[in-house]
Amino acid sequence: MSTRRAGPDGRSDEALLSAIALGDKEAAVAFVRRYQARVYGLAYSILGEAALAEDIAQEALLRAWRHAAVYDPRRGSAAGWLLTITRNLAVDALRLRHHLSIDGEVLARLALASTESPETVAEVHDELRAVRSALALLPPEQRRALLYAAFYGLTAKEIAEEESIPLGTAKTRIRSGLMKLREALGPLTASGEASSKEAK
Protein backbone atom coordinates (compact mmCIF):
# COMPACT_ATOMS: atom_id res chain seq x y z
CA MET A 1 0.00 0.00 0.00
CA SER A 2 1.77 3.08 -1.17
CA THR A 3 -0.80 5.80 -0.55
CA ARG A 4 0.52 8.98 1.00
CA ARG A 5 -2.58 10.92 1.95
CA ALA A 6 -2.87 14.52 2.93
CA GLY A 7 -6.07 15.80 4.46
CA PRO A 8 -7.80 19.17 4.22
CA ASP A 9 -5.33 20.58 6.71
CA GLY A 10 -2.51 19.64 4.37
CA ARG A 11 -0.84 17.28 6.78
CA SER A 12 0.08 13.82 5.53
CA ASP A 13 -0.69 10.68 7.51
CA GLU A 14 2.95 10.40 8.43
CA ALA A 15 3.05 14.00 9.68
CA LEU A 16 -0.05 13.37 11.78
CA LEU A 17 1.45 10.26 13.35
CA SER A 18 4.65 12.13 14.17
CA ALA A 19 2.59 14.86 15.83
CA ILE A 20 0.48 12.32 17.75
CA ALA A 21 3.68 10.80 19.10
CA LEU A 22 4.45 14.23 20.57
CA GLY A 23 1.01 14.45 22.20
CA ASP A 24 -0.66 16.72 19.65
CA LYS A 25 -4.40 16.38 20.32
CA GLU A 26 -5.47 18.07 17.11
CA ALA A 27 -3.42 15.60 15.13
CA ALA A 28 -5.08 12.73 17.00
CA VAL A 29 -8.52 14.09 16.16
CA ALA A 30 -7.59 14.59 12.51
CA PHE A 31 -6.19 11.08 12.24
CA VAL A 32 -9.26 9.50 13.82
CA ARG A 33 -11.67 11.43 11.61
CA ARG A 34 -9.66 10.62 8.51
CA TYR A 35 -9.66 6.90 9.14
CA GLN A 36 -12.50 5.91 11.44
CA ALA A 37 -14.87 4.95 8.60
CA ARG A 38 -12.25 2.85 6.86
CA VAL A 39 -11.16 1.14 10.08
CA TYR A 40 -14.73 0.49 11.18
CA GLY A 41 -15.67 -0.71 7.69
CA LEU A 42 -12.84 -3.24 7.67
CA ALA A 43 -13.66 -4.48 11.18
CA TYR A 44 -17.33 -4.77 10.30
CA SER A 45 -16.59 -6.62 7.07
CA ILE A 46 -14.59 -9.21 8.98
CA LEU A 47 -16.79 -9.52 12.06
CA GLY A 48 -20.28 -8.77 10.73
CA GLU A 49 -21.30 -7.45 14.13
CA ALA A 50 -21.63 -3.73 14.81
CA ALA A 51 -20.84 -3.66 18.54
CA LEU A 52 -17.76 -5.84 18.24
CA ALA A 53 -16.60 -4.00 15.13
CA GLU A 54 -16.90 -0.71 17.01
CA ASP A 55 -14.82 -2.08 19.86
CA ILE A 56 -12.16 -3.41 17.51
CA ALA A 57 -12.05 -0.17 15.50
CA GLN A 58 -11.58 1.86 18.67
CA GLU A 59 -8.82 -0.44 19.84
CA ALA A 60 -7.05 -0.22 16.48
CA LEU A 61 -7.08 3.58 16.56
CA LEU A 62 -5.87 3.57 20.15
CA ARG A 63 -2.97 1.32 19.21
CA ALA A 64 -2.07 3.66 16.40
CA TRP A 65 -2.04 6.52 18.92
CA ARG A 66 0.03 4.56 21.42
CA HIS A 67 2.52 3.29 18.88
CA ALA A 68 2.69 6.35 16.65
CA ALA A 69 6.27 6.91 17.75
CA VAL A 70 7.43 3.58 16.35
CA TYR A 71 5.62 3.80 13.02
CA ASP A 72 8.24 3.62 10.27
CA PRO A 73 7.10 5.05 6.90
CA ARG A 74 9.87 3.14 5.12
CA ARG A 75 7.98 -0.06 5.91
CA GLY A 76 4.76 0.98 4.26
CA SER A 77 1.98 3.54 4.31
CA ALA A 78 0.21 4.66 7.46
CA ALA A 79 -3.06 3.41 5.98
CA GLY A 80 -1.60 -0.03 5.42
CA TRP A 81 -0.16 -0.07 8.92
CA LEU A 82 -3.44 0.95 10.52
CA LEU A 83 -5.57 -1.44 8.46
CA THR A 84 -3.23 -4.32 9.21
CA ILE A 85 -3.55 -3.59 12.93
CA THR A 86 -7.32 -3.56 12.50
CA ARG A 87 -7.37 -6.79 10.56
CA ASN A 88 -5.21 -8.59 13.10
CA LEU A 89 -7.37 -7.45 16.00
CA ALA A 90 -10.52 -8.50 14.18
CA VAL A 91 -9.10 -11.91 13.29
CA ASP A 92 -8.02 -12.40 16.90
CA ALA A 93 -11.57 -11.61 17.98
CA LEU A 94 -12.93 -14.08 15.45
CA ARG A 95 -10.66 -16.80 16.73
CA LEU A 96 -11.73 -16.18 20.30
CA ARG A 97 -15.15 -17.41 19.23
CA HIS A 98 -13.46 -20.80 18.66
CA HIS A 99 -14.94 -21.10 15.23
CA LEU A 100 -14.61 -19.05 12.11
CA SER A 101 -17.79 -17.64 10.74
CA ILE A 102 -17.17 -16.65 7.17
CA ASP A 103 -19.92 -14.67 5.51
CA GLY A 104 -20.06 -15.83 1.92
CA GLU A 105 -21.99 -12.73 0.88
CA VAL A 106 -19.30 -10.47 2.29
CA LEU A 107 -16.61 -12.45 0.54
CA ALA A 108 -18.46 -12.20 -2.73
CA ARG A 109 -18.91 -8.45 -2.40
CA LEU A 110 -15.23 -7.99 -1.67
CA ALA A 111 -14.24 -10.16 -4.59
CA LEU A 112 -16.47 -8.76 -7.29
CA ALA A 113 -15.03 -5.81 -9.12
CA SER A 114 -18.55 -5.08 -10.39
CA THR A 115 -19.66 -3.91 -6.94
CA GLU A 116 -18.20 -0.47 -7.52
CA SER A 117 -19.95 1.83 -5.11
CA PRO A 118 -20.75 5.53 -5.35
CA GLU A 119 -17.98 6.06 -2.85
CA THR A 120 -15.42 4.37 -5.03
CA VAL A 121 -16.62 6.19 -8.11
CA ALA A 122 -16.48 9.56 -6.41
CA GLU A 123 -13.35 9.41 -4.37
CA VAL A 124 -11.50 6.25 -5.18
CA HIS A 125 -7.82 6.67 -5.41
CA ASP A 126 -5.82 4.86 -7.99
CA GLU A 127 -4.65 2.16 -5.68
CA LEU A 128 -8.08 0.82 -4.79
CA ARG A 129 -9.13 0.83 -8.42
CA ALA A 130 -5.94 -1.00 -9.34
CA VAL A 131 -6.45 -3.63 -6.65
CA ARG A 132 -10.03 -4.24 -7.78
CA SER A 133 -8.95 -4.58 -11.39
CA ALA A 134 -6.04 -6.85 -10.57
CA LEU A 135 -8.20 -9.05 -8.37
CA ALA A 136 -10.82 -9.38 -11.09
CA LEU A 137 -8.20 -10.86 -13.40
CA LEU A 138 -7.47 -13.75 -11.04
CA PRO A 139 -9.20 -17.13 -11.33
CA PRO A 140 -12.04 -17.25 -8.77
CA GLU A 141 -10.37 -19.94 -6.67
CA GLN A 142 -7.18 -17.87 -6.32
CA ARG A 143 -9.25 -14.78 -5.52
CA ARG A 144 -11.09 -16.63 -2.77
CA ALA A 145 -7.86 -17.97 -1.30
CA LEU A 146 -6.39 -14.46 -1.08
CA LEU A 147 -9.51 -13.02 0.51
CA TYR A 148 -9.75 -15.87 3.03
CA ALA A 149 -6.17 -15.20 4.08
CA ALA A 150 -6.23 -11.40 3.94
CA PHE A 151 -9.56 -10.80 5.67
CA TYR A 152 -10.10 -13.86 7.86
CA GLY A 153 -6.49 -14.73 8.62
CA LEU A 154 -6.92 -18.31 7.46
CA THR A 155 -3.81 -20.42 7.14
CA ALA A 156 -3.22 -22.53 4.04
CA LYS A 157 -4.38 -25.57 6.02
CA GLU A 158 -7.61 -23.86 6.99
CA ILE A 159 -8.22 -22.71 3.43
CA ALA A 160 -7.69 -26.29 2.27
CA GLU A 161 -10.34 -27.45 4.75
CA GLU A 162 -12.73 -24.66 3.83
CA GLU A 163 -12.44 -25.43 0.13
CA SER A 164 -12.10 -29.21 0.50
CA ILE A 165 -8.86 -29.25 -1.45
CA PRO A 166 -5.37 -30.66 -0.73
CA LEU A 167 -3.03 -28.45 1.31
CA GLY A 168 -0.63 -28.18 -1.62
CA THR A 169 -3.39 -26.83 -3.83
CA ALA A 170 -4.29 -24.19 -1.26
CA LYS A 171 -0.66 -23.10 -1.03
CA THR A 172 -0.40 -22.91 -4.80
CA ARG A 173 -3.53 -20.77 -5.04
CA ILE A 174 -2.19 -18.31 -2.47
CA ARG A 175 1.25 -18.18 -4.05
CA SER A 176 0.06 -17.82 -7.63
CA GLY A 177 -2.67 -15.37 -6.71
CA LEU A 178 -0.50 -13.00 -4.73
CA MET A 179 2.34 -13.07 -7.24
CA LYS A 180 -0.07 -12.24 -10.06
CA LEU A 181 -1.56 -9.48 -7.94
CA ARG A 182 1.87 -8.02 -7.31
CA GLU A 183 2.69 -8.10 -11.01
CA ALA A 184 -0.60 -6.48 -11.94
CA LEU A 185 -0.19 -3.73 -9.37
CA GLY A 186 3.36 -3.12 -10.56
CA PRO A 187 4.75 0.26 -9.56
CA LEU A 188 1.89 0.94 -7.13
CA THR A 189 3.38 -1.61 -4.79
CA ALA A 190 6.39 0.49 -3.94
CA SER A 191 9.15 -1.69 -2.58
CA GLY A 192 11.10 -0.96 0.50
CA GLU A 193 13.08 -2.62 3.20
CA ALA A 194 10.79 -4.95 5.13
CA SER A 195 12.50 -7.98 6.53
CA SER A 196 9.39 -8.86 8.45
CA LYS A 197 6.18 -7.20 9.41
CA GLU A 198 5.40 -7.50 13.05
CA ALA A 199 1.72 -7.11 12.59
CA LYS A 200 1.47 -10.09 10.21
Binding site: Y40, S77, R87
Partner: peptide
Amino acid sequence: AELLAAADGLLLLAPSLEP
Protein backbone atom coordinates in the same frame (compact mmCIF):
# COMPACT_ATOMS: atom_id res chain seq x y z
CA ALA B 1 8.35 -6.01 0.68
CA GLU B 2 6.63 -6.02 -2.72
CA LEU B 3 4.38 -8.90 -1.76
CA LEU B 4 3.46 -7.20 1.52
CA ALA B 5 2.41 -4.10 -0.37
CA ALA B 6 0.18 -6.19 -2.62
CA ALA B 7 -1.30 -8.08 0.34
CA ASP B 8 -1.95 -4.86 2.26
CA GLY B 9 -3.69 -3.44 -0.79
CA LEU B 10 -6.36 -6.12 -0.45
CA LEU B 11 -7.51 -4.54 2.81
CA LEU B 12 -8.54 -1.45 0.85
CA LEU B 13 -11.37 -3.52 -0.62
CA ALA B 14 -13.34 -3.30 2.59
CA PRO B 15 -15.93 -0.52 2.36
CA SER B 16 -15.71 2.66 4.40
CA LEU B 17 -18.59 2.60 6.88
CA GLU B 18 -19.47 5.38 9.27
CA PRO B 19 -19.19 4.07 12.82
